[in-house]
């Protein structure tokens, strides 16, 4: 009977310790780390999806993709997922600038300027100079970037030989 009691006590101690240690490590170590890694991967996937939709699809589909991407980035912030803060500000700023361009082209000046304000707020956190953060400067900058992306992904440029890879470029998919 005593041996049985001892065994039971040992099993309970083992289980309690295992659960406690497992939960603590998972809660404060593994899950935040996995969330951070997966969020980083998903962010790069969604960034390309949004970029291509904004460049290749019609305005509504482009807008939907950008909003999905922005929603994901805001989710990272809301859920306090470990993610480089500067990258988050930059990605959000850029996504809002793309939305600004889209709404401006659609003729919704009020919505466009609201997107511009959010983009400015995000980019201010990066320590950019005041003159670079003016609406005019940012508009020029996003126009320039869009022109470069159009050249890389758009159909205006000469078509490549299918047997060759595209010309390497410094511009990346994001």
């Amino acid at each position: 009977m005593k041996i049985l009691k001892t065994a039971l006590l040992c099993i309970c101690s083992f289980l309690f310790a295992a659960v406690a240690s497992g939960v603590l490590r998972a809660r404060y170590g593994c899950v935040p780390s996995f969330k951070s890694q997966y969020a980083s991967l998903y962010e790069s996937n969604l960034a390309r999806y949004a970029l291509l939709q904004a460049n290749q699809a019609d305005a509504n589909d482009g807008r939907a993709a950008l909003l999905q991407y922005i929603g994901f980035l805001q989710g990272i912030r809301r859920q306090d997922i470990r993610f480089p803060e500067r990258r988050l500000h930059y990605d959000l700023g850029l996504a809002y600038l793309r939305l600004f361009r889209l709404e401006k082209a659609a003729g919704d000046a009020q919505l466009a300027s609201s997107h511009m304000r959010i983009a400015q707020q995000e980019l201010t956190s990066l320590g950019w100079k005041k003159e670079d953060l003016s609406a005019d400067a940012l508009e020029k900058s996003i126009d320039k970037r869009q022109a470069a992306e159009d050249e890389l992904y758009g159909s205006q440029t000469p078509l490549p030989n299918p047997t060759e890879d595209a010309t390497p470029s410094k511009a990346n998919a994001r």
Partner: peptide, 14 residues
């Protein structure tokens, strides 16, 4: 038992 439990939990957490 506690030490064994702590170790098992630690390695099973991931």
């Amino acid at each position: 038992s506690v030490v064994l439990g702590l170790t098992t939990g630690y390695f099973l957490a991931p």
